[in-house]
Amino acid sequence: MAAAGYPISAIAFYSGGLTAYGLMLGTFTSVMVAVVGAREAGWLKRFRASPMPPGAYLAGQIVFNVIVSIALVVVMMATATLVYGLRPRADAYAAVLAYTLLGVFCFTAIALAITRVMTTDEMASSAGPFVTIALSFTSGVFLPPDLLPHWLVTASNYLPLEPLAQSLQHALSLRVGSVFQWHPFIVLGAWGVAAFVAARWTFTWQPLRK
């Protein structure tokens, strides 16, 4: 299987890709659902009405997701190495951790930016997995990208999931060279920052359905 111009073992491909998928499903969907749910139930309004600093809520969401995501990544890595015999370089784990934090940041930001158009948590909880699974098929998670049309792969390169999956796969399968790549930091960073800016403008603490 040649996913990125160098041979990648099936286990490195799937463990890297599925980790990225799990991160997106866990962070993107659950932040979106948690925030929309809390907003529509009036909890956010109540928080806003208290002297709680607004950043505390955001920080809480991020910290919670970082913990859950790291737990997920640890389980994924442990399974891949112990059960399936994945043998990445030692410094690959540092890269995996860095990409995990990057992914949590980016997907949290995008989720927050999207909450404005989600009027119910029901809507959020069906849109989240739908977007995640659609994106994962074009992003080299469930399918090797060489089975896909070229334009679709190129488009996915600029969406957040593909760079994350690809860089995790890269880090886990690398024998020589640097485990760190710069382009996921640029793509995910740009998405994250843009989404945070958008979220600052559009975010609302009040229930939308009234």
Binding site: G22, T29, S30, V31, S125, P129
Partner: peptide, 26 residues
């Protein structure tokens, strides 16, 4: 008990599906 708990649970629950999918696709 809560929507976001359901979402956190969604990925682990999908793992057997993913396993079946991966070995079959390969």
């Amino acid at each position: 008990e809560r929507q976001d708990q359901a979402q956190t649970l969604a990925f682990p629950l999908t793992l057997p599906l993913i396993f079946g999918y991966v070995i079959s696709l390969t």
